[in-house]
């Protein structure tokens, strides 16, 4: 056993022949998981599309109450976090600079935290405006029933997305600790790479959510 744990790949699990097979299998596993995720969000996107086309007026007006500025800032923050994530993966791939990998991972965590914070502010606004579906829901515009449906889908879709963000931040925190301990390097960086895939996926979901919920056919 070598002391330089950080420079060695983690031991190949017993079911694999070698580290290459293990990496390939892990990568494919993550892609297949993301396919499942697409279908998971896809159900909600379908429902949103159907109701949006059935009740365009109500949805347009309800959409107008969302804060575009906060949404746009969040979009920028999230794209920035994808950049730092990609840099973390790249750094792990090409160098043994454990601090730099951890730094990029921490930057991603911070940006993810900022996104969730801003989302929290938006949610709080909705609570104050009584736009949260349920017994206390109050809406002054026309067709309150379908506006409530819009807000229901808004909370479900952004909530499910935020849940994915929280899980992502958790994974990144573990990775950051592992990175500091020198677990990653050019010969072993699969966890960073796969978490990166997951993070980009969550980012892309938002790239669809933002225009669909905030921008398209918006009436104010």
């Amino acid at each position: 056993m070598s002391d330089h744990v950080g420079t060695l790949p983690a031991a190949t699990a017993h079911q694999f022949d070698d580290a290459v097979q293990q990496r390939d299998a892990s990568g494919l596993g993550m892609w297949v998981f993301l396919v499942t995720e697409i279908l998971f969000f896809g159900g909600l996107f379908t429902i949103y599309t159907v109701y949006r086309s059935l009740y365009p007026e109500a949805f347009g007006h309800a959409s107008g109450t969302l804060d575009i500025t906060l949404g746009a800032v969040n979009t920028a923050v999230l794209i920035g976090s994808s950049l730092t994530m990609a840099l973390a993966v790249h750094t792990a791939q090409v160098s043994r600079n454990r601090r730099l990998v951890a730094l990029f991972l921490c930057a991603t965590i911070v940006l993810g935290g900022v996104f969730l914070g801003i989302k929290g502010v938006e949610y709080a606004q909705k609570f104050h405006e009584h736009h949260v579906p349920g017994p206390s829901f109050h809406y002054s515009g026309a067709d309150a029933q379908h506006a409530e449906l819009f807000f229901c889908l808004y909370f479900l879709m952004t909530g499910l997305h935020a849940l994915h963000m929280v899980i992502g931040v958790g994974l990144l925190s573990v990775l950051a600790v592992m990175a500091l301990r020198g677990r990653f390097g050019p010969s072993y960086y699969t966890p960073v790479e796969l978490t990166g895939l997951y993070w980009h996926f969550v980012d892309i979901v938002w790239i669809f959510l933002f225009p669909l919920l905030y921008l398209v056919e918006r009436h104010s």
């Binding site: 297949v32 396919v35 499942t36 995720e37 279908l39 998971f40 896809g42 159900g43």
Partner: peptide, 8 residues
């Protein structure tokens, strides 16, 4: 993979 998330 493709069906189960939708029922969920």
């Amino acid at each position: 993979i493709l069906g189960t998330p939708v029922i969920a």
